[in-house]
Design a protein around this nucleic acid. Structure first.
Lengths: 225, 225
DNA sequence: TAGCCGATTAACCTTTTATTAAGTTATAAA
DNA sequence: TTTATAACTTAATAAAAGGTTAATCGGCTA
């Protein structure tokens, strides 16, 4: 199950398309917002911070490319996925769309199924890191089953130990600040001392045997094999 | 400039397509490998570890989907970008392609320009997250991962050393006054002697080996390779 | 050559982390 | 519900690494 429905904003001036696409995306479990023109799209985007925006190129007011350009300027939308949608089936427009910063480009008439597939494919790619089983060298972490194996030996970790390890391995080589660790693993409302982290780190090191968590003094910890 | 050319493997049984696509991708600066069928594609993929694989769906031996499935099972190819290429313009195949784990799906006849745009768009997305990296010649500084490599060797720097180096490299060739360094790296409220800077500079010089921090007498220090 | 300035070195002090044990809380079993 | 077991947190102490300083050295310049 998904913790939170992904939000998709779709902007098109044809009500029929809005309806069909909304319906299909909602059926798939997405939370959908709509806009009838470029300006509305920008407003809605700011309001809801969608994970994906589907933009019709030809719209009254600002066209899709303009909307994309405007949004991309803002840090909040730097990584937002964008799919262009258009009736124009000419090469130049498509290239322009992709170069403007679109992640995909679909021509009308669209098949709802294909649109869905493409939407899913984009999200799949975008979340690849956060999902399921992580394999780093001989270390395998299964976030769903909550178990860890090292060189095919199962390692029994307590919950906090597991969560801490899972967090550190989410970006190998990245140094996580103690604050980041506390916020992410313990939660920003829980107050525990710094030594608590040390102790858990120690237990993980002990159980793994391998020296894979490196201390970066004055900064934090990082995972690497 | 890019440190290392991205590698693309293209697998298709039509020599014409291999040639046209290779030519265009190479012109764009990519390093291209080719394969004439599914099995060859798997071999080449393992040999070169490409960043992107373009797979024709209909190939003798293993088809594109099969190749994709086989590769996706291996951790090394879990995140490799895959584009399917096919003459079949039917919905079912396209959906299957995207669900198999492809990142994009392009139907023939293909326009080299569109292919290029889509390839670039995928790479743009794929690299969006990892930037916080500063590259100056052979020196690479990753502020997020808090690590430094020189000629691909990892250099272990203490915190102040790292911060000092990161500061100096923020504007290569600019001469930073001792005061600027103290204010920015140590903070304007901290009071430390001038020798402290010297000592840290020395340690960085020592660890880097290369003579890349230049003293400007009576003024300060600057970074240059 | 005296004076200035940075380089170098080693010693000292401070900060941060590691380790251990013990106390507390949560969870599972009886 | 009680008891047993494991997990988690804390506190105290030890160890290590980092940071700063001061003293000395060396080169350059006036």
């Amino acid at each position: 199950m998904q913790a939170k429905a992904r939000k998709i904003l779709i902007a098109d001036d044809e009500p029929d398309i809005l309806e069909i696409v909304s319906f299909n995306l909602q059926a798939e479990g997405y939370e959908v917002f709509t806009a009838k023109n470029g300006n509305e799209a920008i407003e809605e985007a700011k309001k809801h911070q969608p994970d994906l925006i589907i933009l019709d190129v030809m719209m009254p007011g600002k066209n899709g490319f303009e909307v994309c350009n405007i949004l991309r300027l803002q840090p909040a939308f730097k990584d937002t996925l964008i799919i262009f949608l258009t009736a124009l089936n000419d090469e130049t427009t498509e290239i322009k769309g992709l170069e403007t910063g679109g992640d995909d480009y679909i021509t009308k008439p669209i098949s709802p199924k294909i649109l869905l597939s493409r939407v899913n494919a984009l999200f799949r790619r975008a979340t690849k890191e956060e999902s399921g089983i992580v394999q780093i060298g001989d270390l395998q972490i299964d976030r769903e089953k909550y178990n860890v194996t090292y060189k095919n030996e199962e390692i029994i970790l307590a919950r906090k130990e597991f969560e801490l390890l899972a967090f550190l391995t989410s970006k190998p080589h990245k140094v996580f600040l103690r604050n980041e660790i506390l916020n992410q693993v313990w939660g920003s409302d829980v107050i525990v001392g710094d030594r608590t982290i040390d102790v858990h780190i120690r237990k993980i090191r002990q159980k793994l045997g391998a020296d894979c968590i490196t201390t970066v003094k004055g900064v934090g910890y990082k995972f690497q094999l």
